[in-house]
């Protein structure tokens, strides 16, 4: 069955309408919106991780460090140096990108397991450094970070933040998709498929590996900066190896090498403990574990496979 353009447009319109209506549907349960906001911030970070792993074929077990650098840079600039919040976020993104370049260098020599270990070591060291600095609040963490604002408007309510994050996520989603379909994105994918062949076609393999790391780090940095102004509290232990592995799990469950996967994985990760609820929350970890095994074995493209199947069913 050939997918019809009309049906697909309708489906997309329904999806957009649903996304926009969520705050109204859960008006009586604002905490759900709060959790969805966190899920969207994680989805930003996994979007970058997926670019790196799913499309670039590179591994990072230090991805949480990029979020930490983005978050701390932006928060410290605003709190200690009274920098404009927008510029602080830009600086957070740039700082993370710079560290992406640093973490990217081992990828020029290492791959697979060895690259995983190298990025893990570099990534974990970031949390340790933050813990020892005074300006970052050290082991006490950084609290009372000002709330997100957009020019003159303070985004205090969960619903206002929700709409803001939906827009940011949609923009990043489109940017990543466009990038992957451009000359640079094709070069990144070519390097993943075969370095020697890509080089023979004129692709500077080392440069594109670094570009992939920098781009992925910038997106995670954006996620971290927005996270800081949303949660208003940062602590180094939140950005250690555990969270890096968490981000990795979200990407795998959602589906590596797909653009929608990271979003699905992050929503699943954040919402599952809520859905299970009450005393059974601990089961969430078990279900995550099983989901990872399940996606690796049965759904190589993770949850995004389910979406594709539903699309096929509904003939979209």
């Amino acid at each position: 069955m050939v997918p019809s353009r009309g049906r697909r447009l309708t489906a997309n319109a329904v999806l957009v309408a649903l996304v926009l209506l969520v705050p109204l549907i859960f008006r009586t349960k604002p905490s759900i919106i709060g959790y969805l906001n966190i899920a969207m911030l994680y989805a930003l970070a996994t979007q970058g991780l997926n670019l790196l792993m799913g499309f670039g074929g590179l591994v990072s077990l230090g991805h949480a460090a990029f979020m930490a650098i983005g978050g701390y840079t932006a928060a410290v600039l605003v709190m200690t140096y009274h920098v404009n919040m927008f510029l602080a976020v830009v600086a957070g993104v740039a700082g993370a990108g710079l560290f992406g370049l640093v973490i990217g260098f081992p990828s020029l020599r290492l791959s697979g397991f060895y690259l995983a270990v190298a990025t893990m070591a570099l990534g974990s060291s970031v949390a340790d450094v933050i813990k020892r600095l005074t300006i970052t609040g050290g082991d006490y963490g950084l609290s009372n970070i000002p709330s997100l604002r957009l020019g003159p408007w303070k985004l205090v309510s969960d619903a206002s933040r929700y709409y803001f994050f939906v827009i940011i996520l949609a923009l990043v989603f489109l940017a990543v998709r466009n990038f992957l379909n451009s000359r640079s994105g094709r070069a990144v994918r070519a390097v993943h498929d075969s370095e020697m062949t890509a080089a023979a076609m004129g692709v500077n393999v080392a440069a594109y590996k670094l570009i992939t790391f920098i781009f992925a780090a910038c997106i995670a940095g954006l996620s971290g900066a927005l996270y800081a102004f949303t949660i208003s509290y940062l602590h180094p232990t939140n950005f250690g190896l555990t969270f890096s592995i968490g981000l990795l799990s979200m990407s795998i469950i959602g589906g590596l090498g797909t653009i929608i996967g990271p979003i699905l994985g992050a929503v699943f990760w954040v919402m599952l403990p809520l859905i299970i609820g009450g005393k059974l929350t601990y089961l969430a970890t078990v279900i995550f574990g099983l989901s990872i095994i399940g996606s690796v074995m049965f759904l190589p493209k993770g949850l995004s496979d389910l979406v594709t199947r539903i699309q096929t069913r509904l003939k979209l």
Partner: peptide, 12 residues
């Protein structure tokens, strides 16, 4: 490049 279309392969 197996993950790409014919068009994308040639464009590389």
């Amino acid at each position: 490049f197996p993950s790409m279309t014919v068009r994308e392969n040639i464009l590389v």
